[in-house]
């Protein structure tokens, strides 16, 4: 029995070490590429063990690129505002729905739930956000479409309120003369920090990583988020290499170089890697909260 157990331990560790390497190595390659000497990349390609190391990409990043820091600022701003607004709106919608005595609550819950089953897709949504409410090239374009409120989060939060905030507490607050708003932010929210952290983390990640809204609704470089800048740089270099011809090498030289591109990608990942350990437990909890029903 012991021998069998030990075999399983070895096998499990072996498989998981291989999988972990597969998950980590591309990040290491990205990082190594960002600290490789530019000429070395051109001749030897991206390598885990570059023959010449250089931090010039980061120096360039630090010294010259206002645009990158501007984009970084946009990403931070959108993530902070978006996550906060999303938490406020989501919890405001979830709390009344968690109250079983609310007349019409069932119907409103269905209205929320239905959005999970059926959606209009890209073209009609694009039309609404450009024709009905013109968000093109505004900060709202990065905040509103698709991201701000997710019906799944509303139902998740509603279930949490129903199961963890005791009805007796709500009733005694009401007897003590607390209004509904007061009950909501003095009692319900403080008791619900775990779910707020979970939803906040998912929303924060969604805003930080979003590139779709920028791609669809933003053409003004001043409003590009970091992801949009990364997207643009990739496309432009690709454009230059496929169109070829005279002058392209000059244009290529003027663009951020290979290592510089990788350095921007690195500074895009680092905040997630730093923040994740703090949120890990909420992350796992959020993924495993099962009971979400319409």
């Amino acid at each position: 029995m012991d021998v069998e157990n030990r075999k399983w331990q070895w096998a499990a560790h072996a498989v998981l070490i291989l999988l972990s390497l597969a998950c980590v190595l591309p990040f290491i390659l990205l990082f190594m590429a960002s600290i490789t000497d530019e000429k070395t990349i051109v001749s030897n390609g991206y390598s885990f063990f570059p023959s010449r190391i250089s931090f010039s990409a980061y120096e360039y990043l630090w010294n010259q690129s206002n645009q990158i820091f501007h984009a970084y600022g946009i990403t931070v701003l959108v993530t902070v505002i978006g996550t906060f607004a999303s938490l406020v709106i989501t919890s405001l919608l979830a709390y009344p729905l968690s109250r079983r005595d609310l007349p019409g609550g069932q119907f409103i819950a269905f209205v929320v739930f239905f959005t999970l089953l059926f959606n209009g897709g890209l073209v009609p949504t694009y039309m609404v956000y450009t024709q009905v409410l013109d968000v093109k090239n505004t900060l709202l374009a990065l905040l509103l479409p698709w991201l701000l409120l997710n019906g799944f989060n509303v139902l998740l939060m509603r279930t949490f309120f129903q199961t963890t905030v005791p009805l007796a507490v709500l009733e005694s607050a009401s007897i003590d003369g607390a209004g509904e708003f007061k009950t909501y932010y003095r009692i319900v929210l403080p008791l619900s920090l775990p779910i707020l952290a979970t939803v906040g983390m998912f929303q924060g990640l969604a805003y930080w990583n979003d590139w779709n809204n920028g791609l669809v609704f933003v053409t003004e470089p001043d409003l590009f988020s970091l992801q949009n800048v990364l997207n643009r740089i990739m496309n432009d270099i690709q454009f230059l290499t496929t169109s070829g011809g005279a002058g392209s090498s000059q244009a290529l030289a003027a663009l951020p170089s290979e290592t510089f591109r990788m350095a921007i990608a690195v500074i895009g990942v680092v905040p997630i890697l730093i923040a994740y350990p703090f949120f890990q437990k909420y992350f796992v909890r959020g993924m495993t909260i099962g009971a979400v029903k319409g």
């Binding site: 406020v88 919608l93 059926f118 959606n119 009609p124 609404v128 409410l133 509103l144 698709w146």
Partner: peptide
């Protein structure tokens, strides 16, 4: 309290259905 969330769902999810 329901108003902001429902208004958003109308804009983002229900208007596109039309």
């Amino acid at each position: 309290m329901l108003v902001p969330g429902l208004a958003y769902l109308v804009l983002n999810n229900y208007l596109p259905l039309f």
